[in-house]
Each structure stands twice: as C-alpha cells, then as structure tokens.
C-alpha cells in the first residue's frame, strides 16, 4: 500500500525538519514543548506492542526511530544549550492536562477497538495524537508569526495523516476492513491541521512567509 509508506515517510521527514530547524536557527522559538511531550506519550503508549509481538524489521525500526527522534527533540528543547534558552514557556500555556490528556481519555472511552487494556490504551494513543497539535496551534496563534520552516513541519504532519486516511480507504476497497477508531481519529486530526494547511498553501503560492 503505497499511500501508507508515503505517510510514514512524511512523518519521519517532519521530525527531521524540526531537528534541522532547531539546529540551523539555534533556537526553538515558536515551538510548543507540550505538543512534543504529548507525542512522546502517544508513541510510548502505542508502541508498548514492541514487547508483545514482532511484525517486521521495518515496523520495529520505524517505531524506534519515532520514539528516539521525539526524545531527541525534547532533549534539544528542554536541556541542550543554546536551543533550550529560547523556549517560550509563557506562550506555551495551553491547559493540556485538563483538555488533551483528559479529552483523549473521554474520546477513547467512547470510540475504541476493544475494552481489553492494550486495545483501550492503543485507542487512547490515537485520540491523544489527534489532539496533540492543539498546544502548538494555540502557541502559534499567540505569537502570530510563523517561521516558514515551522509551517513545513506542521504541513508535513498534516499531510501525513491525510495519506493514512487515503490508505485506509484503499485498504477498505480491497478487503472491506475498516478501523473506525483510526478513521475517526485521523479525520479529527486532519481537520485540526486543515485550517493551518489552508494558510500554509496560500503562503507557498505567494512565495512569502506566513502569519496567522
């Protein structure tokens, strides 16, 4: 399924864009640490299955790459000088415990694949991922100005989930299988990015930097 591999690749590219951006500009202005922290929680909860069964070398290495890239980004933002000095904690103030972690838990109780602990945790990770970008969008709206490379980052992340939706439709057309949890979570996630992507595409066309 080519769409799915494009999606995985885009996801990986988004981490790379972010790491290169932080290193090049030597700061992490405009980036939400809370969003990165939620992504780490998403991967740690979802990829517990690394200890449960083996799928493929591709699957295992991608999971490890996703986790380690996110850990590395968190390290750069929180601990590595000089990058960590420019972290703007005052603008990164979305109440994520109250709305993201709790909201995703409520959504997972409503829409899930199964009530078994692993399946419920997996469904929670899907909803957590869908909502994870909210602190970042909240922060971008507060500081108004968006560096172009940051738009590339959010752009890559948004398109990645869209390609997963295309891949699920493709899979459904072949096998008739559909996972409502992934599909609904993916749709919510893509809608959250869509507004941003709309301005992103306009700014690409005009060839100028963008501001919200």
């Amino acid at each position: 399924n080519p769409f799915r591999y494009i999606a995985d690749f885009l996801h990986l590219v988004s981490f790379l864009i972010l790491i290169l951006k932080i290193r090049k500009t030597r700061n992490c202005l405009g980036l939400s640490f809370r969003t990165q922290e939620i992504y780490l929680a998403v991967f740690c909860v979802r990829y517990i299955d690394l200890f449960m069964y083996f799928v493929s070398v591709y699957n295992t290495s991608m999971k490890l790459l996703y986790i380690s890239s996110t850990v590395f980004i968190i390290y750069l933002m929180k601990f590595k000088k000089p990058y960590c000095l420019s972290y703007d904690s005052a603008s990164d103030d979305f109440p994520h415990y109250k709305f993201i972690y709790t909201g995703a838990a409520v959504l997972a109780l409503l829409v899930h694949t199964d009530l078994a602990p692993f399946e419920l945790g997996w469904s929670y990770s899907i909803w957590l991922e869908a909502l994870a970008i909210i602190p970042q969008l909240h922060m971008l709206q507060k500081i108004k100005d968006v560096e172009n490379i940051t738009s590339n980052y959010v752009g890559a992340l948004g398109v990645y989930r869209f390609f997963y939706i295309v891949s699920w439709i493709y899979k459904y057309s072949l096998t008739g299988d559909v996972c409502w949890t992934s599909l609904l979570g993916g749709i919510v996630q893509t809608i959250l990015y869509a507004d941003f992507l709309y301005y992103y595409i306009i700014s690409l066309k005009s060839g100028k930097g963008m501001s919200l």
């Binding site: 799915r4 995985d8 996801h11 299955d49 069964y53 799928v55 493929s56 699957n59 991608m62 999971k63 996703y66 694949t113 997996w122 997963y164 899979k171 008739g176 299988d177 559909v178 996972c179 409502w180 949890t181 992934s182």
Partner: peptide
C-alpha cells in the same frame, strides 16, 4: 461493521 485495526500500522 468491522472495527479491525492493523498490527503493522505505525
């Protein structure tokens, strides 16, 4: 309706 998730997705 099937609610079937794929083990190999990331």
């Amino acid at each position: 309706k099937k609610n079937k998730k794929s083990k190999d997705e990331l």
